[in-house]
């Protein structure tokens, strides 16, 4: 059973921000796939602001070379977007793996980010695309890189009264991109390990490599030392072997040794190798 709460359905951003500024013990609902589960499992709040009808949070657009994704765009819409499958393929692939068809029709990119699960499928590809988030409150707005927004598992920098309004990413034309994940089964499962990549190559050399690893460390991360190492290097087995070893070294540095590594590290090795070799 859900606890008792009052719900409000604003239609404009200003209205939503005004409610968030003045209501006590308030939480934001979009698709509801995380919030309602939390409330049914014993969580509580007195007020719920449903932002799904807010016009200013919807839709995908292109502005000044950036792709702007409204925070209430659903995973289903992202996985079907031709704009994304052309310019941010790893993200559209990842969104097609989230939950089940029902969850993808309900859940939103904003919800996925604010929930900040270490296993969130949308996060590794967004890191690859240097995602910057627009966050607004009645007092004003700020922008923050996704990398800084998630401060710990299930914890973000969002302060009371603030609302994640849009996600800005750079398209990566000329890169080959992808997202692969390993889960207990193919569909309707939480990622046990995931890798997003975008790779630009020319004349047998890596020009720019972007990697993000999810479900392995407390927060999905980009091994930037490995990306730096690969820049300009010849694309051969020796380079790729060194890069893979560096990724694993980075994971060990972040988390220390873990019992799950017996399984996870060989999988990371395999996924990163494939991403670089393809």
């Amino acid at each position: 059973m859900l606890p008792e709460f009052a719900s409000i359905n604003p239609e404009t951003k200003e209205e939503a921000l005004a409610y968030l500024a003045c209501l006590e013990d308030v939480r934001v609902i979009a698709g509801g796939t995380d919030l309602l589960v939390d409330l049914k499992r014993g969580g509580s709040c007195s007020n719920v602001v449903d932002v799904m009808n807010v016009a200013g949070l919807k839709g995908l657009s292109v502005a000044g070379g950036d792709i702007v994704i409204g925070s209430t765009v659903t995973h289903a819409a992202l996985s079907r977007s031709t704009l994304l499958s052309d310019a941010a393929r790893s993200l559209s692939v990842a969104c097609g793996w989230i939950g089940s068809p029902q969850i993808r029709n309900m859940g939103t990119i904003g919800g996925n980010l604010v929930n900040a699960s270490p296993a969130a499928d949308s996060i590794p590809p967004l890191l690859v695309h240097d995602a910057v988030l627009s966050i607004e409150s009645k007092a004003g707005g700020r922008e923050e890189a996704l990398e800084d927004f998630i401060v710990a598992p299930y914890e973000t920098s969002l302060k009371p009264g603030e609302l994640l309004t849009s996600v800005h990413i750079k398209g990566l034309p000329g890169y080959r991109e992808g997202y692969r994940r390993i889960a207990k089964r193919a569909a309707w499962a939480i990622s046990r390990l995931s890798v997003a990549w975008a790779v630009r190559e020319a004349d047998g050399r890596f020009i720019d490599v972007r990697l993000a690893i999810g479900s392995c460390t407390p927060m999905p991360f980009r091994p930037r030392n490995v990306e730096g190492f690969l820049r300009g290097k010849e694309k051969d087995d020796s380079t790729i072997g060194k890069a893979v070893a560096m990724v694993i070294g980075e994971i060990r540095r972040i988390t220390g040794d873990r019992p799950s590594f017996v399984y996870k590290l060989p999988v990371v090795k395999d996924l990163v190798q494939k991403a670089l070799r393809d």
Partner: peptide
Amino acid sequence: CGLGECGTCTVLIDNEPHYSCLTLASKVN
């Protein structure tokens, strides 16, 4: 399950499947 996992509460909203156990009724206005 009541938690959006089993799918037996599935209904179509604008012809797309949704879990009605995790959909606030006010959303279908």
